[in-house]
Design a protein around this nucleic acid. Structure first.
Length: 473
RNA sequence: GUCCCCAUCGUCUAGAGGCCUAGGACGCCAGCCUUUCACGUUGGUAACACGGGUUCGAAUCCCGUUGGGGACGCCA
């Protein structure tokens, strides 16, 4: 039977990096086994769920390239069905009404803790006569969990994990307002959606035991579980949603490519021999959830950057130019002119070799985007000593008559430095100030390439403005 | 407090009793390439948490210690 997996985020925050990895693994597992990957939005908490968050999650999934099958299931739309199952359990004597007040519950927990017992509900309404029900108190419905024995889960990642039933209390499946709780909805939905493999974060492991009890009470087949370890921050602390730039959109904004993030996330907790650069097709072919490690991984931006740089170099120049334009218009600035596009396309090959992220690429691309007079960095100014400026003045005269292919430009500059200049100079002595004058920066792509792309007119303009106006020393 | 899980270079990992004087990648350091920066390339640094077993032999199996993490809501 082909497996059916699902990613089931709750829209109380944005899609974060841990959720993205969970979704990735679910998708890869399904694709690998020729199964189905579904998406369910767990929006049963009406107070905290927002339409913005739902949209952000869907957008994050799409951006990351995590396409899902079938329609998105909204848990809130299924409340009636959840209630129906809860009532069925009540009818069958596998659940009961409980009238305990929040104060009583709190006290129970405190006492249990003080006495060294597992904290939780003590079952005081479990076998009580319904006639004892207090007037006017709406009850919750609790699941009558087995008290003896144990729950054994054969987790695909964690291995066999056992918990004694006495550790688990009678959980609420229907709130006093009649709405279903998460623990209950998940089981009903996973069953109804035909989920065969529940792949989710390690933080749900203990939930699995309770959920297993419910499956059994309903006589439903228990799905396979795979609880994958959580991602930790660089400091080893857990990566909470509050930890700053962790929403998936933040990675996009900082200039990470979805394929780089996918590759990075895949290698967190999973490996395939010595493979580091793994294409989507290879990922589908190689990935199996059983190979996921049990130890939590720390998030390392340096490695992500390295992967991102790799995929940046891999991208074609057109798509990179388009990406740059999108970033720009997203800030409310105008798109590129024809000339700018022409220059970017010509220069992209060496530009992308120098960038780790799109924002690096963007600032490196500035050379081709600004009009003179250009701004000079402090380091560029340092390069433009009186001596250097006089060299540039000499070079300018030769440039006037030089061919403008990069090789010709280099030959001209070399000729000036090594033959005309007295005493002779090393190429760098002239090329560096030239770079500063043309680009306003100490670093850039090969200067003769930049000059070729910029064209004669623009370069001489920049040179003149540097030579005339400026006093850099 | 109760229960559960984890433990190989700084980080991600390979390793399923001899192939391990522990491999790869990122980072870091150095060399080469070079008009800068990068790319590329060559080399280097660096780990089996600790203590007991089991075994002819343990990073790999068992137990304990320590250290990390997670779960214990009418949240999901």
């Amino acid at each position: 039977m082909a497996p059916v997996t699902r990613f089931a985020p709750s829209p109380t925050g944005f899609l974060h990096i841990g959720g993205a990895r969970t979704a990735l693994f679910n998708r890869l597992f399904a694709r690998h086994h020729g199964g189905v990957f579904r998406l369910r939005i767990e929006d049963t908490d009406k107070q905290r769920s927002t339409p913005e968050a739902i949209e952000a999650i869907l957008e994050g999934m799409r951006w990351l390239g995590l396409d899902w099958d079938d329609e998105v299931v909204f848990q809130s739309a299924r409340a009636e069905r959840h209630r129906e199952v809860a009532l069925e359990l009540l009818e069958a004597g596998k659940a009961y009404r409980c009238y305990a007040t929040p104060e009583e519950l709190k006290e129970m927990r405190e006492r249990a803790r003080a006495e060294g017992r597992p904290p939780g509900y003590d079952g005081r309404w479990r076998d009580r006569d319904p006639a004892d029900a207090p007037e006017g108190v709406p009850p919750v419905i609790r699941f009558k969990a087995p008290r003896e024995g144990e729950q054994v889960i054969e987790d695909l990642v964690q291995g066999q994990v056992t918990v004694a039933n006495r550790q688990l209390d009678d959980m609420i499946i229907l709130r006093s307002d009649g709405s279903p709780t998460y623990m209950h909805s998940v089981v009903v939905d996973d069953h109804d959606m035909g989920i065969t493999h529940v792949i989710r974060g390690d933080d749900h492991l203990t939930n699995a035991f309770r959920q297993r009890q419910l499956y059994e009470a309903m006589g439903w087949p228990v799905p396979a579980f795979a609880h994958i370890p959580l991602i930790h921050g660089a400091d080893g602390a857990k990566m909470s949603k509050r930890h700053g730039a962790l929403a998936i959109g933040a990675y996009r904004d900082e200039g990470y490519l979805p394929e780089a993030l996918r590759n990075y996330l895949l290698r967190l907790g999973w490996g395939h021999g010595d493979e580091e650069i793994i294409s989507d097709a290879q990922a589908v072919e190689w990935f199996d959830v059983g190979d996921v490690g049990k130890n939590p991984a720390r998030f390392d931006f340096a490695k992500l950057d390295n992967l991102n740089a790799h995929y940046l170099r891999q991208r074609d120049d057109e798509s990179l130019t388009a990406l740059l334009e999108v970033r720009r218009t997203a800030r409310g600035e105008s798109g590129f002119t024809e000339l700018q596009v022409e220059r970017l396309l010509a220069g992209m090959a060496s530009l992308k070799q120098r960038a780790k992220r799109l924002d690096d690429l963007e600032s490196a691309a500035e050379v081709y985007l600004v009009d003179p007079p250009i701004a000079y960095s402090d380091q560029a100014k340092k390069l433009l000593t009186p001596d250097a400026l006089s060299h540039l003045a000499g070079l300018r005269a030769l440039l006037e008559a030089s061919g403008w292919e990069r090789e010709e430009l280099e030959a001209t500059t070399r000729q000036f430095a090594e033959e005309i200049s007295d005493p002779p100079l090393k190429l760098g002595k002239v090329a560096q100030p030239l770079r500063a004058a043309i680009t306003g920066s100490k670093v850039s792509p090969p200067i003769f390439e930049v000059m070729e792309i910029l064209g004669r007119k623009s370069c001489l303009e920049r040179l003149d403005s540097c030579l005339n106006g400026a006093n850099f020393s």
